[in-house]
């Protein structure tokens, strides 16, 4: 069920036989997946399936014990720290508290990979920061302290920082976990728009299969550290595949006037 290999490697992630074992326990086993450019891909799976570990490996937060992880056709380990951060942006599940920082200051941190420790903060940097804030709909909040923002606003502030980073690939670990439905939709549409308009490679770790099917082009599903399903969202949304992923009897309906199907527990 492995999806067709994308011919071009530019701006794409490719994983070959990736394995990870921690203290003798195998977390990931021979994972081979592709994350093509300009597509938004969901990593699905229940708790402990290894999806977060896989994302961390792609973000270089952990090192695979076996296999190869290639970005843009090159092993991720071959990039320098800032060079990689200019290519790939990563949003961890839990963010720092950003004590004493205003929203604009936090988002400006995203420009670090470009100007480095000593470089000048240019007008271009300023524009990217403003664009990032605008894109997440936080215009007008620039001088507010991050600590004083609500949970949803804070989440979007961090995504704004990620956007300001101006990377070609965004890796997000459950970015919608803390958000209400309206904000979930807002954030996911934003990400989808970015992948389509700017040709960004977006990888999102998610729980909710319907949200994944609604917003993502591709779905990769993991279970027990192995790939159990992989392909366009529509192909994954079958009762058989879903049962395989979640170990629960599920069914799928196709409501009229809606492109994506809806899965529900029987």
């Amino acid at each position: 069920m492995v999806s067709e290999a994308v011919s071009s490697e530019a701006g794409a992630f490719r994983l070959e036989g990736v394995g990870l074992s921690v203290q003798g326990r195998e977390i990931l086993r021979g994972v081979g997946l592709s994350f093509p450019k300009g597509r938004m891909t969901a990593l699905l799976g229940h708790n402990g399936s290894g999806k977060s570990s896989l994302l961390r490996i792609m973000a270089r937060r952990a090192e695979a014990t076996r296999g190869a992880v290639l970005w843009d056709g090159r092993a991720v380990g071959a990039f320098g720290e800032r060079a990689f951060a200019r290519q790939v942006a990563w949003l961890p599940q839990e963010m720092g508290a950003a004590p004493g920082m205003t929203l604009r200051e936090l988002v400006a941190c995203g420009r670090y990979p470009w100007h480095g420790p000593l470089g000048r903060f240019t007008e271009e940097d300023g524009r990217k920061v403003a664009a990032g804030i605008e894109a997440v709909g936080l215009g007008g909040f620039e001088e507010r302290f991050v600590q004083t923002l609500s949970g949803g606003e804070r989440q979007r502030a961090w995504i704004a920082m990620m956007l300001a980073q101006d990377a070609r690939c965004l890796l997000l670990d459950e970015p919608t976990a803390a958000l209400d439905v309206a904000h979930q939709v807002e954030v996911l549409s934003l990400l989808r728009g970015l992948s389509q308009e700017k040709g960004l490679t977006v990888v999102v770790v998610m729980h909710e299969v319907n949200m994944a099917a609604r917003f993502c082009d591709l779905i990769h599903a993991l279970k027990g550290g192995e790939v159990v399903a992989s392909g366009p969202a529509a192909e994954i949304m079958t009762p058989e595949t879903l049962r395989l992923i979640y170990d629960v009897e599920m069914n799928v309906t196709h409501p009229p006037g809606r492109e994506a199907p809806i899965a529900y527990v029987v």
Binding site: E81, R82, F84, A89, L91, P92, M95, P117
Partner: peptide, 23 residues
Amino acid sequence: LLARRWLDLLPLGPETASALGIP
């Protein structure tokens, strides 16, 4: 003073700091 950006980013946590390319 020159390391001001490191000093701003490091308190965000090692995860975020290294995601932004700080060694």
